[in-house]
Design a protein around this nucleic acid. Structure first.
Lengths: 180, 180
DNA sequence: GCCGGCATGTAAGGAGTTACATGATTCG
DNA sequence: CGAATCATGTAACTCCTTACATGCCGGC
């Protein structure tokens, strides 16, 4: 039940059409809540039916035509409610850790190459986050909104830092293993 | 496509029946790949139909009776294949970060209490991991299998450490915020 | 005018969750 | 024997993914 709220947040930040939202999910909100355009269109339809958002008047109802949405007061209220509500953390699912555990049983043959690839991907992601930090959060801006957004970005930076360190350590471990 | 491989790994570590597996998923494998008993039974049926596992001979075919499984050579081969295959990391989904981003737009009212609760949950999980580390990985055991398992556990420890630190930082940030 | 890209969708299926159902075993 | 618990399942639903379909729009 989080996708509709992710969309409400994005639309409050700026009214947008479906593909705009999709692109923003690829870049920013999608770093911690990804969504495909199919999901987004379906959810926009639901949110409109529930009275949480509405299409901006400029939009025609034909198919291939751009259709932008804005959040209605009921939608903002729902987002406030959801943000404040207690929620249990969802259990993590991590394929790579699972594969390492499998490797402890069936051997590490072939796994090292993919660990290197993941390490590279995490390094790139970390570099991207650090660029965003330099660009969007120069020292001195301490508005409440900026501080919260920066906090979220720092979580991303620290998580990617963790993964690069851990993968480096894992690869060192592999180097010292009896060959599989 | 990871649940069947999680089950194969667990069954290779020790042949088990459905509920045994469910309990082990609650304690150990489930720390990074959770599954309910319904999922597990469904998947055991599929794996048996595919010839990857078989019921141990002792088992009767009646309903409420215990039925243990073991991995067949084809199952082991499939697990080896899957472990070595290149896989892209799945995008993360984190509700808490999403809520923080929403709070940057609609205000932080009511969120702080749940952050404290999450901090407490992560501290407990961290303590549990550290207990496991003390119990199962005393210094000196450096078999290949133990080193890989320890590596996985350290990932859990470091992730929980990150979350406790980040949440602490977030709560400090909240304390300095203009009240919402 | 048509072709490639933009924009909005539909359909089918997989994976996970929630609620419920049924048979066996154990213990008082 | 009756109730609680163990153990194995079914059914319905939601969410997400993958593949495909359709209409508009600008440039050549």
């Amino acid at each position: 039940m989080s996708l509709p709220h992710a969309i409400l947040t994005a639309l409050l930040e700026r009214p947008s059409a479906g593909l705009d939202l999709t692109r923003r999910f690829d870049r920013s909100i999608g770093y911690f809540w990804s969504a495909s355009h199919q999901q987004i269109y379906r959810e926009l339809g639901k949110l409109e039916a529930e009275g949480f958002i509405r299409a901006l008047p400029a939009a025609q109802p034909t198919r291939g035509q751009k259709k932008s949405y804005e959040v209605l007061p009921a939608g903002r209220a729902e987002l406030e409610r959801w943000t404040a509500a207690a929620q249990d953390p969802k259990p993590h699912r991590d394929t790579l850790l699972l594969r390492l555990r499998a490797a402890a049983v069936v051997g590490t043959e072939g796994l090292e190459a993919d660990l290197r690839r993941h390490l590279d991907l995490h390094r790139r992601q970390l570099a991207e986050y650090e660029d965003i930090e330099k660009r969007d959060f120069p020292p001195g801006n301490d508005s409440a909104q900026a501080r919260l957004q920066h906090l979220v970005l720092r979580a991303g930076i620290e998580l990617e830092t963790f993964w690069t360190q851990w993968l480096t350590e894992a690869l060192e471990e592999f180097a010292g293993l009896p060959d599989s």
